[in-house]
């Protein structure tokens, strides 16, 4: 049984936001002008980072839930991808700061 468009859309948005969180961390820590721009935007890079990630989840969730293809996604498949994305993103953050 497939999920509703809302649930599937926001699950997909969560996967993208979680992976995006790690990629944005690596990008800002590796590219000083981006870090400075994020500091300038809301006073602290972490504040800007959080707002960008949370906003991307809600905006992508809204957009994905209107995308006809999400109606074909099963909860089981999204759950498996969510686990893989979360583990890789969490481990990716740790390994990045370990190697930095």
């Amino acid at each position: 049984m497939n999920l509703s468009a809302k649930s599937a859309g926001y699950a997909l948005a969560a996967i993208v936001a979680i992976v995006g969180n790690t990629l944005l961390t690596i990008a800002k820590e590796s590219y000083e002008p981006l870090l400075q721009a994020m500091k300038a935007a809301l006073g602290h890079h972490w504040t800007t980072h959080g707002v960008v990630i949370v906003a991307s989840f809600f905006i992508l969730g809204y957009l994905f839930s209107r995308w006809p293809a999400v109606a074909r996604m099963s909860g089981t498949m999204l759950a498996i991808v969510l686990v893989i994305a979360t583990i890789l993103s969490g481990v990716g953050l740790f390994v990045f700061f370990l190697a930095k």
Partner: peptide, 16 residues
């Protein structure tokens, strides 16, 4: 930075 993963997952729970 990992905290944002937990935050997003908690939002997803509400939607589903």
């Amino acid at each position: 930075h990992a905290f944002f993963i937990t935050l997003i997952l908690s939002f997803l729970l509400v939607v589903v």
